[in-house]
């Protein structure tokens, strides 16, 4: 027989007039191998169909189900009830816009980030759809892949005190996303241009090295080394004035 789990879940639907934030308590029998995706689905099917939460892939690839599980940002699909006490508190991720209950809008945040920082491949070459893809050496490809593994779940942002203190700080996810293009040989921007975007208190020099990001990234991205890498690269460019002016570093 499984444990009897108690869930205290944040309920609030800002789009429903008259809705006020409250905590609702649910009870559920634990089953073997139960993760929070299973638990929440059962709660919604058996106890309260109005409970809002997000899921798509159920396998830690889509980044939709980030939430605060007993205070820490986690993916619900990757968190098993057996690793938690019988009392489980669920809150929506902070930082992002609340859609209702446990559901938040991470998409707008990441889209704004991309627009603000130019987080896409910048090239002057026209795309030729029938041309063969250019080759890239394996080491570079792997390094890009390491950054590209980010699923934009937002856990690192919720876990970063600096993000909470300074809304415009783009956090580890934002910086990591720019590193991905900086590493890409097809991107034609020089380091100096990246400095313009990232070399400030809202970019890498706002990071205080608290490592909440790395310790809470469900994909185990090597964020410490990633952040340190870009910090050094940009500092080398930033201290030599002339290069900053020319654009290509």
């Amino acid at each position: 027989m499984g444990r009897r789990l108690t869930f205290d879940i944040f309920r609030y639907n800002p789009s429903v007039p008259g809705s006020t934030p409250r905590i609702q308590t649910f009870q559920l029998e634990e089953t073997p191998g139960m993760n929070l995706f299973v638990a929440l689905t059962r709660l919604r099917e058996e106890q309260d169909p109005s409970l809002k939460f997000d899921f798509v892939c159920r396998m830690a690839l889509c980044g939709s189900c980030g939430m605060l599980i007993n205070g820490r940002p986690r993916l619900a699909c990757k968190t098993f009830t057996r690793d938690l006490p019988a009392q489980i508190n669920l809150f929506p991720l902070p930082v992002f816009k609340l859609l209702g209950d446990l559901s938040v809008d991470t998409g707008t945040w990441f889209r704004n980030l991309a627009l603000k920082t130019g987080a896409w491949l910048h090239t002057s070459r026209a795309f030729e759809h029938d041309a063969r893809e250019e080759r890239m050496d394996n080491e570079t490809a792997l390094r890009i892949y390491e950054a590209e593994r980010c699923i934009e779940c937002g856990c690192c942002l919720a876990a970063c005190a600096k993000v909470h203190l300074q809304k415009e700080f783009i956090g580890a996810a934002g910086i990591n996303r720019l590193v991905r293009f900086m590493l890409d040989p097809r991107d034609e921007r020089g380091v100096a241009q990246y400095f313009e975007v990232l070399g400030s208190e809202n970019g890498i020099y706002g990071c205080m090295g608290l490592m909440g990001c790395e310790d809470n990234c469900p994909k185990d991205l090597p964020l410490q080394l990633q952040l340190a890498y870009i910090r050094r690269r940009l500092a080398a460019t930033g201290v030599s004035r002339s290069q900053t002016r020319q654009g290509k570093g």
């Binding site: 241009q193 313009e196 400030s200 020099y205 500092a235 930033g238």
Partner: peptide, 19 residues
């Protein structure tokens, strides 16, 4: 990409120097 996405004032390197 806009040339200067954020207006940082006369010296965009000041945050680096403080650091």
């Amino acid at each position: 990409m806009p040339d200067k996405p954020e207006a940082l004032g006369p010296n965009p390197r000041v945050d680096l120097y403080l650091e």
